[in-house]
Amino acid sequence: MPHHQEAHRPAADTVARGLGWFSLGLGAVELLGAKSLARWMGLDKHEALIRAYGAREIATGIGLLTSRDPGPWMWGRVGGDALDLAILGTALSDRDAETDRVVFATAAVAGVTVIDVLCAQSLDASRRNESDRHWDYGDRSGLPRSPTQMRGVARDFEVPRDMRIPEALRPYDQAQRRPL
């Protein structure tokens, strides 16, 4: 029998879309305010790198907001976070860096990384659940008896003349020299 189903969007999916908007916002800030951001952290020479990260964030944000499956894009975000943390870790040993501010930025990125990882894992889990769920319609034949028993029940149907296969192409019995 048909079943009733209420469709819904999983929570992780909603969080992923939210992070997509966050990526767009952060990307815009990094892209447009790279100079100020670099100066604030005392990393003036990394301005171009910050701008490149901004472009990456915007691309990820668009991917998260437009794709049917945000899972791969979430793992892309996690990869980006790892890169950010690595660069910030290196910056800590930079003599020109504003250490307090770099530590603050590192803590913020670490926090976001935790959210990204949890969200990506949750999306993976919901996808696994969906593919593991087995919908078996093996009892839905629509026929009153087995297909074998129902085979040919409608042979009383006369195929209209305009839909018959051409006589020359009908199965042919070579021995009897006539159509099968």
């Binding site: 048909p2 079943h3 189903q5 469709a7 839905r140 629509g142 029940v153």
Partner: peptide, 19 residues
């Protein structure tokens, strides 16, 4: 000879149509 309803898997109201 056949009951075509075998193919129905979901029955919902019109409001749920978009989803």
């Amino acid at each position: 000879q056949i009951d075509p309803s075998f193919v129905i898997t979901h029955t919902v109201g019109l409001d749920d149509g978009p989803e």
